[in-house]
Design a protein around this nucleic acid. Structure first.
Length: 589
RNA sequence: GGCCCGGUAGUUCAGUUGGUUAGAACGCUAGCCUGUCACGCUAGAGGCCGAGGGUUCGAGUCCCUUCCGGGUCGCCA
């Protein structure tokens, strides 16, 4: 048989093609052999179409059709015919027609695959990832990667219209001390020296602003050698953006327009602009999180003032040490939760560092709780009023350092939201969180470290506290949050070298250390720097949320598993002694 | 690095207080079948129960070690 040329994609065929001779190619999804009649579901990227083999129509090719098995790659030449009314399949877009085969060419055979190539196939992640090339044939995976492609395309279109230039920055670069653990690449030419793979293009994009490129973006691969999670891979993709001569509002305005375009195109959802904004402080006070899920209530309340004079030492001690007592009213859970479930919540908060979880059940007859005996009637009344406690409610309290109270109650709130089914999957709450603290204290290093990064600008009104009260300095940093997940974050940068020096000093760097680590940047900053700032999105997370998936693996073609290995290629793997010798490396394992 | 869950046929799973020859479904193979679309019917193949060690008359089942996968805390400027 002479070589066939494809005329159509399987999934594109419809009633408009009835009567046409077509040549289609693809993978055998399924064979239904009725003896004298064989049906083949043929699959390509665009969908599935039914092919019919009838010996009267395809003659000698019928014998070949009998040999077909799942995942064989074939070419079919045939006629598109309308199906009889009673044989229409409304489950597929091509279900009103079928292709009556005239010729068949088996282009490639296949072993029986370890799992069926279909969306609802039940198979473990380990098997899927070992045979990722087969997993990627599943329509859902193909749709996810097509969505990812489209999101990138829309972003490029949008930023191009706004005058942004896409510029590449190095993958082999210099290790910087702050932040995550670096992936290192040994230098052959410089024995004992290493490149680092970029954690982000941060310093390069700032230098591009200094160089006058005004508006930059890049869809950039980034690397961080830290433990994996469902939403974290060691290599991931950032949409990295930087602009000159702007302030916070300019960046927020541009980015929410871009997000609105993405949501409109991807989900046909009209995002109302401007997006809500919330300060970091308000987010922590109300939700115990700097990335609040605002789809439901169950907000935190500070009850420190009410309980500070009680006899309950757990509460009063926490307050005396500078901490707080905060509470959530789990509406209706006093009536619906068993004692066992409440004990489960107590265990739950312990994972987040809380030493315990105090609870009060509000009933018609009064309060049920192990701790009410420590409080007088006025105090209990005040608690009920403050927390809007009504019969059937469950009041939950954590007392500790603020940091722990927020973490424990913030996570407890999310857990309650999940248990009570309060998270609406079809709701997309976008929110800016602003005015992040410039520093956070590192117990491990016994010093202040940059919460965002060391180049983040403080807010003008707080600059005077840089040396005296670093804890209270707020920054021009902002995060964009979607349903409780941080999808992006950025800041206005420091463009004044004097201020940058003060910043490094506050971080505990000597001048020598600062120059050793960031000398090229400090040097550059002596040559005229425009005010500038930017943002970076986690593309994987954004696409994951748009695709309705719960792991970024579902939107990455070849992801890694929890121990950072690739089950398909089996990377990482040992290398030859010769390679190590060239790199001047001796193993110590 | 800590904690939790899991590992039995190609796949997803069941497997009683430790007790004959380890099961099911789907998939696979062969035969029959001209309107199926999760085709149907008949027959069949397929297992080092993750690996190693221990307890026991006897281990898929109990204990220890280890490997693998998942979740999570720490970590992730």
């Amino acid at each position: 048989m002479k070589k066939l040329n494809r005329t159509h994609m399987c999934g594109h065929l419809n009633q408009n093609h009835v009567g046409k001779k077509v040549t289609i190619m693809g993978w055998v999804q399924r064979r239904r052999d009725l003896g004298g009649l064989i049906f083949i579901d043929l699959r390509d990227r665009e969908g599935i179409v039914q092919v019919v083999f009838d010996a009267k129509k395809c003659g000698k090719y019928f014998d070949d059709a009998e040999k077909l098995r799942n995942e064989y790659v074939i070419a079919i030449k045939g006629d598109v015919v309308e199906r009889a009314q009673e044989t229409v399949n409304t489950k597929i877009s091509t279900g009103y027609i079928e292709v009556v085969a005239r010729e068949l060419d088996i282009l490639s055979t296949s072993q029986t695959p370890p799992f069926m190539i279909e969306d609802n196939t039940k198979v473990s992640d380990a098997v899927r990832l070992k045979y990722r090339y087969l997993d990627l044939r599943r329509p859902k995976m193909q749709q996810n990667l097509i969505l990812r492609h489209n999101v990138c395309k829309w972003i490029r279109e949008f930023l191009d219209e706004k005058g942004f230039l896409e510029i590449e920055t190095p993958m082999l670069t210099k290790s910087t001390p702050e932040g995550a653990r670096d992936y290192l690449v040994p230098s052959r030419i410089h024995p004992g020296a290493f490149y680092a793979l970029p954690q982000s293009p941060q310093l390069f994009k700032q230098l591009l602003m200094l160089s006058g490129y005004d508006r930059y973006y890049q869809i950039a691969r980034c690397f961080r050698d830290e433990d994996l999670r469902a939403d974290r891979q060691p290599e991931f993709t950032q949409i990295d953006i930087e602009m000159s001569f702007i302030d916070v509002d300019d960046i927020i305005d541009l980015n929410e327009r871009m997000l609105a375009k993405i949501f409109k195109n991807a989900l046909d959802i009209d995002i109302e602009l401007p997006l809500p904004r919330m300060t970091y402080k308000e987010a922590m006070d109300r939700y115990g999180s700097d990335k609040p899920d605002t789809r439901f209530g169950l907000e935190l309340k500070d009850v420190s003032d009410i309980v500070k004079n009680s006899d309950f030492k757990v509460f009063t001690n926490a307050i005396e040490k500078g901490g707080s007592v905060r509470a959530i009213n789990a509406k209706g859970c006093g009536a619906s939760f068993s004692r066992r479930e409440i004990d489960g919540l107590v265990d739950y908060v312990k994972d987040y560092g809380a030493k315990g979880l105090a609870w009060i059940i509000v009933e018609e007859e009064g309060l049920k709780s192990p701790i009410t005996k420590f409080f007088n009637v006025d105090c209990l009344d005040a608690l009920l009023e403050n927390l809007n406690g009504e019969p059937g409610d469950l009041l939950l309290f954590v007392a500790d350092k603020d940091e722990i109270v927020f973490h424990a109650l913030g996570e407890l709130r999310l857990e309650l939201g999940r248990r009570l089914g309060l998270m609406n999957d079809s709701q997309y709450n976008l929110l800016w969180v602003t005015e992040f603290p410039l520093f956070e204290y590192s117990e491990e290093e016994k010093r202040y470290v940059a919460k965002h990064h060391p180049f983040t600008s403080p807010m003008e009104e707080d600059i005077d506290y840089l040396e005296t009260e670093p804890k209270r300095v707020r920054s021009k940093a902002y995060d964009i949050v979607l349903n409780g997940i941080e999808i992006g974050g950025g800041s206005i940068r420091i463009h004044d070298s004097k201020l940058q020096e003060r910043m490094f000093k506050a971080l505990g760097f000597t001048e020598e250390q600062a120059w050793e680590r960031f000398g090229f940047l400090l040097k550059a900053f002596q040559y005229g720097v425009p005010p500038h700032g930017g943002i970076a999105y986690g593309l994987d997370r954004l696409v994951m949320l748009l695709a309705g998936e719960d792991s970024i693996r579902e939107v990455i073609a070849f992801p890694k598993v929890q121990n950072a290995s690739d089950l398909m290629t089996e990377a990482p793997s040992p290398v030859d002694q010769k390679q190590l010798k060239e790199l001047h490396i001796k193993l110590d394992i």
